[in-house]
């Protein structure tokens, strides 16, 4: 079944190894939920205090790029979930292909985010670097964009880590046919990737959608 070295010495069975991996990742993700949760709570407080400014700021974000990026990330999640199914079926070529597509989609997301940041810089919307808004809502807009850069920057760092993890799994994809540990690891990596997607789903709703109907 499993080769020597496929299970660490302190684990008794492949089943226990897989459970430890999955539960360990969910425990880590709990801390991530609270990290992003704290940011979302500050957003909620300021949104509640000044909804008009937040609507005004939301209108200044680039909804086309944001929406494309959401579709890109959702599709990459589909690819990772499908790659795991391919791994379970022992289909190495589809597994590799799907991981490549997921990695490329992740890179496209980061590229579009860079384009977006450049646009915000030229619009003087970067607090602390170049922020030139005037009028009664300037302070609220500044708070919104502080949240925007913190949250999307933190999210981008997570995505970058996810891309590196997927590249590692892509490089040793051939192991899927002889080492069950590979598949357990890939599923754990998949959980992380999907979590990044879930975070973005909420960031998209909080950042790009406010103020569109006004």
């Amino acid at each position: 079944m499993s080769e020597p070295g496929d299970i660490a010495a302190h684990l008794s069975s492949p089943k226990q190894r897989d459970e430890v991996l999955e539960l360990g990742m969910w425990t880590f993700l709990s801390t991530e939920i609270l990290l992003f949760g704290g940011l979302v709570m500050t957003y909620m407080v300021y949104h509640h205090a000044d909804p008009v400014s937040f609507a005004e700021a939301g209108r200044q974000t680039r909804i086309v790029i944001g929406t494309i990026n959401t579709a890109v990330l959702l599709t990459s999640s589909f690819c990772v979930a499908a790659a795991i199914q391919a791994g379970q079926a022992g289909a190495v070529r589809p597994l590799k292909g799907l991981l490549v597509v997921a990695i490329v989609l992740g890179l496209i997301f980061l590229g579009l985010k860079g384009v977006e940041y450049a646009g915000e810089y030229s619009d003087h919307l970067v607090p602390g670097v170049d922020f030139a808004q005037s009028g009664p809502h300037a302070q609220g807009i500044r708070l919104f964009f502080i949240f925007y850069f913190l949250a999307t920057g933190l999210h981008a760092i997570h995505l970058l880590c996810g891309i590196v993890v997927l590249i590692v799994f892509l490089r040793c994809a051939r192991q899927v046919v002889r080492r069950p540990r590979y598949l357990a690891g890939l599923r754990t990596a998949g959980l992380y990737w999907h979590f990044i997607d879930v975070v973005w789903i909420f960031l998209y709703a909080l950042i790009y959608l406010p103020g569109r109907s006004g």
């Binding site: 997607d197 789903i201 909420f202």
Partner: peptide, 21 residues
């Protein structure tokens, strides 16, 4: 608008967690 956006985001996150995760 805000409530609907968050409700749909929750539905999307639920799908990702139930099916993809």
């Amino acid at each position: 608008n805000f409530v609907v956006a968050l409700a749909i985001a929750t539905a999307k996150a639920g799908l990702v967690m139930i099916i993809f995760m």
